[in-house]
């Protein structure tokens, strides 16, 4: 059986909000090390990989592997019934067909319980090999989100170029073109505003901005984001969690 407790329901609410626009139904695999999810969006352009380590929960118990087949939008609907600072408990018996969610206020004088029906989901999994990327950029998650939002007014695609001078985002459409360039920098007072670039060779890739904007909904989970890119390959975009991560593999647009 699974029993996992979080001190604040907002932690799970934010994670579900970060993935719900891309995923419909998917399996969450639970074992003694924590919860994991790997799922493709409907168009197979983005793969979401979520890891929530058992250390990230205030209490965690899972004696035997449990697969939770869930509709992510149904989970989001139920989570809307929880206050952000409620204590949240997830429970599922072995071979049960439901996930029980309990929301308690801190004084434990209100307890809400919701039972979410589980589904048998026949899901495709991709084998993602360990990859050395040509360029790794760590930057503010909020700045990335803002930059992409600005450029989405110009075009449905963004080109990202990374070299030793910095990282450049550009877009071109009917009304004209625009770009933002960030130089590597260290901000001693606000570490999350630093831009760190590790590079073995310069990279340039283009991506659909609508999908990118869905990915950056994870910005509420972490102050920084790690972008990893290699020419001609999907990018890896990671938001670190206190114990785990939300990671996206994002297929580029390539000249035909």
């Amino acid at each position: 059986m699974l029993e996992a407790k979080l001190d604040a329901a907002s932690q799970l609410k934010k994670i579900v909000e970060a993935i719900r626009d891309m995923l419909g139904e998917c399996n969450i695999e639970c074992n003694e090390t924590g919860l994991a999810l790997q799922s493709l969006d409907k168009s197979h352009i983005v793969l979401v990989s979520l890891l929530l380590g058992s250390d990230g929960f205030s209490e965690y118990r899972c004696d035997r592997g449990v697969t939770l087949g869930l509709n992510i939008n149904s989970l989001a609907t139920v989570l809307r019934c929880a206050n952000n600072d409620d204590i949240l408990t997830l429970r599922s018996e072995d071979r049960a067909n439901e996930l029980i969610l309990t929301f308690e206020d801190s004084k434990a004088d209100r307890i809400s319980e919701f039972n979410l029906r589980l589904m048998d989901i026949d899901q495709e999994y991709l084998a993602i090999p360990e990859t050395e990327y040509a360029a790794t950029v760590v930057m503010s998650a909020a700045v990335l989100q803002r930059t992409l939002r600005d450029l989405s007014a110009l075009s449905e695609a963004v080109t990202i170029e990374i070299d030793k001078e910095g990282i450049r985002f550009s877009a071109e459409g009917d009304l004209g073109k625009g770009s933002t360039h960030f130089k590597p920098c260290v901000d001693m007072e606000n570490a999350e505003n630093s831009i760190n670039i590790t590079l073995s060779e310069p990279v340039s890739l283009s991506f659909n901005l609508q999908y990118f904007s869905n990915i950056t909904k994870a910005s509420s989970l972490s102050s920084t984001v790690t972008l990893q890119m290699t020419a001609g390959m999907p990018a890896q975009i990671e938001y670190k969690l206190p114990s785990g991560h939300v990671r996206y593999y994002f297929a580029p647009k390539i000249e035909d």
């Binding site: 352009i45 983005v46 999994y125 991709l126 993602i128 283009s206 390959m233 999907p234 297929a251 647009k253």
Partner: peptide
């Protein structure tokens, strides 16, 4: 013009 790729063009099914 650039063409949108799918992840299945890069990664095999597990």
């Amino acid at each position: 013009t650039p063409v949108q790729n799918n992840l299945s063009e890069f990664y095999a099914l597990a």
